[in-house]
Design a protein around this nucleic acid. Structure first.
Length: 578
RNA sequence: UGGGACGUCGACAAGCGGUAAGUCAGCGGUUUUUGGUGCCGCCAAUCGCAGGUUCGAAUCCUGCCGUCCCAGCCA
């Protein structure tokens, strides 16, 4: 397994650095296992999100740390929801993050014959039976009360199905006929014979097979019975010789069942270990919820830049490196946790600060007229491409007498501590000249600001004052006659609430979405070099943030997504001032 | 009130009987031609609570409290 383009940093996990690696290490030294083989088992029913990223970086990472192998196995045993397009998307996204599985690509649906044979083995051992109970009856027999979130639940022992003691031969016959399609969907199930009085509900004779006449995206209509997760997963792990089956906490109560199937089927004894799944503030990490956002068109698709999917993050401008760094920082534990999204944003800023070339772009343009500039003159000034990376070199920028500056960088009446442009004040135009604001124009009709006037100091080319005088503010600009029109898309959090799922009873969490979370700025301008930006290119727009070139880019106009803003201490001051 | 798990700074998270790492956030300062970056400093007399064991407890024991998960013929 490769870890991607960049070499692993010093913060990469090491054997024994978390409780899972400790357990694996112990299993190796105790001789329980001779080597390490893990698996990442996504169901192809949706696109991968950053939560999955934690899971598969553990799966691949643990294998890698111990010189083992990690299989990619599609857990595709539910024909109703699965599709090849999801398989393709999942593979693409895992690779993007930097993991490779080579030939170790498997499908649970390839194990249908193997699983069927094992089911027969269990029937013959008297450990499984065909049941005629309906789903509703089965629920009642399981002996549980009506679901009610906040009520204490009574869980009397379950009741045995009247079909529980069917003779082995009859079970064998019926199961074969289930497979042959003699019974209607839902008419019969194959159940494990465990204990209907077991305190753990999942042990009360769980269903192993259900009848479902639904074409499967890989097996077509070859089967009309499909294995359930609890039966299929441990045995699929066994078939692949998985030593450590790593999964999230919700499967903890399934572990006894996992072990039961392994023991009764007499197969390779994989060990299941559970860890806490990833939660992040201001977003939802659940394929089911994300699917709703897509289906109800509240976002533009699985790859909407506001989505926490890998495709969304990629389009937004997140780098694989930044995500891997994030994962290395959040740790692995069993405590339910909610990670602050600001940590993710920090990781992106840190990565891009080192690597992104700086360019100047004006998002909300305001005309600046340099009144004492020689008419028609164009001067070229040098600009540093990346102050964090000397090797990135410099570029030349055209400076003229008519410039675009950021609307926010001028105030007719400046608030306290404002040190950008206002009448009488001087600022530096980055890499250009020091200017002094001499006035401004307003539209006679609307009274709105239309242009700002200034004079420049010819002795300050490049921004340095020969007399070393202090100029507190430096603002960005682009030459109006050289600027290229660009489109900038600014994103806010899709959910203003820290925990979107925690809505009052009766409220649909979808209604808490920020309808203005995507803002499109059509009238932005960029420095000339931006005309040749290609999708995926990333930049720092000086003083504004990191931007990534979107696939919607056309020759006529480049489109940029704001990946993350720069930290803005002025915004904090403003906020304090009210 | 059946079963399974978890409770260390606002958020993550080390710690594994010898006297509370680190990161993000926050706050203050400094450097700066990005109000960015960098740098410096502050931010847990205390580990959910109460007892107990011990020379010594976040770490061991007991009890309590709180939170999460489970009643799909989904995974």
């Amino acid at each position: 397994m490769a870890t991607g383009a960049s070499e692993p940093g010093a913060s990469e996990p090491k054997p024994g650095s978390d409780f899972i690696r400790e357990a694996v290490k112990a299993d190796l030294s105790s001789g329980r296992f001779k080597d390490v083989r893990t698996r990442f088992p996504p169901e192809p029913n949706g696109w991968l999100h950053i939560g999955h990223t934690k899971a598969f970086s553990i799966d691949f990472g643990v294998a890698q740390d111990f010189g083992g192998v990690c299989n990619l196995r599609f857990d595709d045993t539910n024909p109703e929801k699965e599709d090849q397009s999801y398989v393709d998307a999942i593979k693409r996204d895992i690779r993007w993050l930097g993991y490779e599985w080579g030939a170790n690509e498997f499908y649970a649906s390839d194990y249908y014959d193997y699983l069927y044979d094992l089911a027969i083995k269990l029937i013959k051992k008297g450990k499984a039976y065909v049941d005629d109970l309906s789903d509703e009856e089965m629920r009642q027999y399981r002996g549980t009360a009506v679901p009610d979130k906040n009520n204490i639940t009574l869980t009397p022992p379950g009741k045995n199905s009247p079909w529980r003691e069917r003779p082995v031969d009859e079970n064998l016959d019926l199961f074969a006929r289930m497979k042959a399609g003699e019974f209607a969907d839902g008419a019969k199930t194959l159940r494990a014979k465990i204990d209907m009085a077991h305190p753990n509900l999942v042990m009360r004779d769980p269903v192993m097979y259900r009848i479902r006449r639904e074409p499967h995206y890989r097996t077509g209509d070859a089967w009309c019975i499909y294995p359930m997760y609890d039966f299929q997963h441990p045995l699929s792990d066994a078939k692949e010789g998985i030593t450590h089956s790593l999964c999230s906490l919700e499967y903890e109560i399934h572990r006894p069942l996992y072990d039961w199937f392994i023991q009764e089927a007499e197969v390779f004894p994989s060990r299941q270990i559970e860890f806490a799944r990833l939660n992040i503030t201001h977003t939802v990490l659940s394929k089911r919820w994300l699917l709703r956002l897509v289906q109800e068109k509240l976002v533009s698709g699985w790859d909407d830049p506001r989505m926490p999917t890998l495709a969304g993050l990629r389009r937004r401008g997140y780098t694989p490196e930044s995500i891997r760094d994030f994962l290395s920082r959040i740790g692995i534990a069993k405590t339910d946790s909610m990670v602050d999204i600001q940590l993710l944003e920090h990781c992106l800023r840190e990565d891009l600060n080192k690597r992104a070339h700086r360019v100047m772009a004006v998002l909300k343009p305001l005309k600046l007229i340099v009144d004492n500039w020689p008419a028609g003159a164009v001067e070229w000034v040098d600009a540093v491409n990346n102050p964090e990376d000397e090797g990135a070199g410099t570029r030349a920028l055209p400076f003229t007498g008519e410039l675009w500056i950021e609307r926010d960088d001028f105030q007719a009446v400046p608030p306290p501590k404002y040190f950008r442009l206002f009448p009488g004040n001087s600022v530096r135009l980055r890499y250009g000249y020091i200017i002094t604001c001499t006035g401004y124009d307003t539209d006679p009709a609307t009274g709105e600001l239309s242009a700002v006037h200034c004079s420049y100091d010819p002795d300050t080319k490049g921004g340095n004052a020969p007399d070393n005088r202090k100029v507190k503010g430096t603002i960005h600009w682009v030459s109006a006659s050289h600027a290229v029109p660009i489109e900038a898309r600014l994103y806010e959090r899709l959910f203003p609430a820290e925990r979107p799922m925690d809505v009052p009873a009766g409220t649909d969490w979808l209604s808490t979405i920020d309808p203005d979370s995507a803002q499109v700025l059509q009238g932005a301008y960029g420095e000339p070099s931006l005309a040749s930006a290609k999708p995926g290119d990333f930049f720092q727009f000086e003083r504004l943030g990191y931007f990534s070139c979107d696939p919607d880019t056309r020759d006529s106009r480049a489109v940029f997504n704001r990946s993350v803003s720069l930290k803005d201490s002025w915004a904090k001051i403003e906020k304090k001032q009210g």
